[in-house]
């Protein structure tokens, strides 16, 4: 059961990369998928039910589309403006983080780094240390709201809050 999600992802990626649906490609895709599933599933998947839940995949897709359009556009325009005006006040700030799931934390850290203007420096159990292009506030809650609330909300929706 644990192997199934890894097989599906590997097979779909193989078909996307080859860009064809001939019998030959499907057979080699299945062989690749099975090999990948047997080799990596025990390192990648803890809870197969969670990985096969279509609602989670759907919310991931919605989040991804929103992320690459709205959130990225806003952050890019902000940093481009700062490149011209040089209005910066760089600092490394402490931001509380509540997600416990490993994949969820990875998603939050990557989302923070991929938006221009914030880079994750380090993450411990309770806090994320974020290099912010312009430190606007000293209030932790306010920072949390500005930097990672949206990512965290979606990470919990996609991967769950606790480390399951």
């Amino acid at each position: 059961m644990r192997e199934l999600p890894v097989f599906i992802v590997a097979f779909v990626l193989y078909i996307v990369v080859t860009g064809s649906m001939t019998l030959y490609d499907i057979i080699t895709g299945v062989i690749t998928g099975v090999t990948a599933a047997l080799l990596f599933s025990k390192h990648l998947i803890k809870n197969p039910k969670k990985a096969l839940n279509p609602c989670r995949w759907l919310s991931f897709l919605i989040y991804f589309i929103k992320y690459v359009t709205v959130i990225e556009l806003r952050a890019h325009l902000d940093v481009m403006k700062r490149i011209i005006t040089k209005e910066t006040r760089p600092g490394i700030v402490k931001v509380p983080i509540t997600v416990r799931d490993e994949y969820g934390r990875f998603l939050v850290a990557n989302s923070i780094t991929n938006t221009p203007g914030t880079v994750t420096v380090y993450m411990d159990d309770e806090y994320a240390y974020v290099n912010w292009i312009s430190v606007e506030t000293d209030d932790m809650e306010e920072r949390r709201r500005k930097i990672l609330e949206e990512f965290e909300k979606n990470a919990i929706k996609i991967f769950g809050g606790a480390d399951e």
């Binding site: 490149i83 760089p90 490394i92 221009p116 203007g117 292009i133």
Partner: peptide
């Protein structure tokens, strides 16, 4: 250096 990281992300 820290500011250049943001330019690199762009």
């Amino acid at each position: 250096f820290y500011l250049r990281l943001h330019a690199a992300t762009v």
